[in-house]
């Protein structure tokens, strides 16, 4: 199987950074690219939602929420008992892995498009849904249900995180405007999707490589966890996808959502809610190990697993 060009951009960024070439996208451009990805993904899902009864999806949204609670609960004992991490660090890493990465999801979408595999287009709704529960589970794992937790501030940081709001804006506008959006916004949002993703991944490669140095500091267990846990979580995702009766493409995307770890919304929320947790640990794992693993190896691997499981 040949690599998708967008993935090659990621690898290029990674190598450039390891060669110590002084390259980094201006942060405003990086932010612009992520805004484009979030809104485009949101719009795609919203247009699809406009074609169906949103009420029919409530059951599935519930199942996806359950998955979002289950994955951090699965990660925590592995980190705490096997990895010997401090309770708060184990909980923080578990929260990162329970949540999702939009970048990885976008790579999955690009993968399906190049393989001409269709998928349930309301998947972005689950992307929004999965951002939240893991953060709450992580905080409860670290502190119990404690009065110290400032839930209002936590909610502000997580529910109103920029990434969630932008996805939601896309979903809502897509849903309200429906198919006719294609007429007016196609050229700006949908046509350049892969180009935007390619540039985004180039920068992510640079950022991921800058985390590599920290690996030595945090040890082999974290490296192993960052690679093995996503594969386990993807299988959990597959079981949930089966439960919901998703197609092959939809199953792959749910597996990717299960396998990916957050590196934007959760780090910010956890830094506020669990200041004692070491932010370097979870960011190195999610950004330095799991993100590259998922982008390069994980996505095609999960596709193979899904194909075998669903017998397609």
């Amino acid at each position: 199987m040949t690599l998708d060009p967008v993935v090659m951009f990621f690898i290029a960024g990674f190598i450039i950074s390891l060669m110590r070439v002084d390259f980094k996208l201006p942060s405003a451009i990086y932010e612009f690219l992520s805004i484009m990805l979030l809104i485009t993904i949101g719009l795609k899902g919203g247009i699809e939602l406009s074609k169906q009864h949103v009420g029919d999806l409530i059951g599935d949204v519930g199942i996806v929420l359950l998955m979002g609670v289950f994955i951090p609960l699965l990660a925590y004992p592995i980190l705490y008992l096997l990895g010997q991490f401090k309770r708060v660090d184990a909980a923080s890493i578990a929260a990162h892995y329970g949540s999702v990465s939009v970048g990885t999801y976008a790579v999955g979408v690009a993968f399906l498009e190049s393989h001409h595999v269709s998928y349930e287009s309301h998947m972005p709704l689950y992307l929004v849904v999965l951002e939240i529960p893991a953060i709450v589970v992580g905080i409860v794992l670290a502190k119990g249900i404690s009065k110290e937790t400032n839930w209002a501030e936590m909610a502000q940081e997580s529910f109103l995180a920029k990434s969630i709001v932008l996805l939601f804006v896309g979903l809502f506008i897509g849903w309200a405007a429906g198919e006719k959006i294609h007429l007016s916004l196609d050229a700006f949002f949908f046509a350049p999707f892969k180009g935007i993703l390619a540039l985004f991944l180039l920068e992510m490669g640079v950022v991921a490589a800058s985390q590599v140095g920290l690996l030595k500091k945090y040890g082999l267990f974290l490296l192993g966890f960052g690679i093995v846990f996503p594969v386990i979580a993807s299988c959990v995702g597959l079981v949930f996808a089966d439960l919901m009766g998703l197609s092959l493409g939809g199953s792959l995307l749910l597996m990717i959502l299960a396998a990916s770890a957050s590196y934007i919304a959760v780090p910010a929320a956890v830094r506020i809610a669990l200041p004692e947790a070491n932010p370097g640990l979870s960011l190195t794992a999610s950004l330095g190990i799991t993100f590259p693993f998922n982008v390069i190896v994980g996505v095609p691997l999960y596709y193979k697993i899904a194909e075998m499981y669903l017998g397609a």
Binding site: S27, S210, G280, L287
Partner: peptide
């Protein structure tokens, strides 16, 4: 508390 390189938003 380490290098704050500003290569990453957080």
């Amino acid at each position: 508390s380490g290098i704050k390189s500003a290569t990453w938003m957080n």
